[in-house]
C-alpha cells in the first residue's frame, strides 16, 4: 500500500500546484506553485522507477526553467504591484501541509534504503540505455531539435532587435 499512498500524495501536490497556478493573482506566486507541480512530477517519475528522468525533471524543469520563469516574471512586474510577502494564516497552513507532505516523502524514501548505501560501479544501466536510444533510435529527432533551436534562435534575434528599436 505504500506506493499508492505516496502516489496519491504526489498527485495531489501536482494538482494543487497546477490549481494554484491558475487561481493566484500574483504571477510570482503562480511560478512558485508551478515549481511544486514540477517537483511532484519528478517524484512520480521516481516512483515509476525512472531515476534518470526524475533527476532531469528536477534539474531542467524545477531548476533551470523555473528560475528563468521567476526571473522574468519578477523582472517585468511593475514596482507598485510588489507588496511585502504576507504570512497570513491560510497561506501558512497551506505551506505547512505542503512541507509535511514533502517531509513524509523524504522519510519514506530514506526508509526505503533501509540503511544500505547504494553502490554503483560506473554509470547506472538506465543512463546507458537512455544514451543508446537517444543516440541510436532517436538520433534523427535529436538532431532535428538542433535545427529547430537554430530557427528559434533567429526568431529570438528578430524579437530582441525590435525591443531595441522601440526604446
Amino acid at each position: 500500500m505504500l506506493v499508492p499512498i505516496s502516489f496519491a500524495l504526489l498527485a495531489l501536490l501536482a494538482l494543487g500546484g497546477a490549481l494554484m497556478l491558475l487561481f493566484r493573482r500574483d504571477p510570482v506566486d503562480g511560478v512558485l506553485s508551478l515549481v511544486v507541480t514540477m517537483l511532484a512530477l519528478a517524484g512520480i517519475y521516481l516512483q515509476l522507477a525512472d531515476p534518470v528522468v526524475a533527476a532531469l525533471q528536477v534539474i531542467v524543469y524545477a531548476g533551470a526553467i523555473m528560475v528563468l520563469f521567476l526571473f522574468v516574471t519578477m523582472f517585468v512586474r511593475r514596482a507598485e504591484e510588489r507588496g511585502p510577502l504576507g504570512w497570513d494564516r491560510p497561506r501558512f497552513a497551506l505551506a505547512s501541509i505542503v512541507a509535511a507532505c514533502l517531509l513524509g516523502l523524504l522519510v519514506q524514501a530514506i526508509g526505503a534504503f533501509g540503511g544500505n548505501t547504494p553502490t554503483h560501479p560506473g554509470p547506472p544501466a538506465e543512463i546507458a540505455a537512455i544514451a543508446h536510444s537517444l543516440f541510436g533510435e532517436f538520433l534523427y529527432p535529436f538532431e532535428l531539435v538542433s535545427a529547430l533551436l537554430l530557427v528559434a534562435m533567429v526568431g529570438v534575434v528578430v524579437l530582441g532587435r525590435r525591443g531595441e528599436e522601440s526604446s
Binding site: 534523427y140 529527432p141 532535428l144 531539435v145 535545427a147 529547430l148 530557427v151 528559434a152 533567429v154 526568431g155 528578430v158 524579437l159
Partner: peptide, 15 residues
C-alpha cells in the same frame, strides 16, 4: 518526429 516538425513550423510562423 511529428511533434518536432509541427513545432518547427509553428515557431517560425509565430515570429
Amino acid at each position: 518526429s511529428i511533434f518536432i516538425s509541427v513545432e518547427f513550423v509553428s515557431l517560425a510562423s509565430y515570429v
